[in-house]
Amino acid sequence: METEENLRSTRIVFGVHCLKIRHKGMYVSYEPDPDPAVYNELFDSGSYWCAQTQTSFGPDGQPVRPDICQGGRTCCAL
């Protein structure tokens, strides 16, 4: 059996994740690899920040991460 499960999609998806979430890969001149796994290996350091607060906490004081920067959070901008 060969299975792989990505429990934490680190690729930011428009319409799903807050438009204010940022990570390194968004700001370097590199063509994102269409394979999320390769892309994540290169640039997913797990470091996320909010473009509005410029910290790793959103306007509501809670952490910035793809798993929680989604619709339903009061400060989330879709």
Partner: peptide, 12 residues
């Protein structure tokens, strides 16, 4: 750990 609310991310 990457501190408050942040992890180590992808660890190859």
């Amino acid at each position: 750990t990457g501190g408050a609310g942040q992890g180590v991310g992808n660890l190859p």
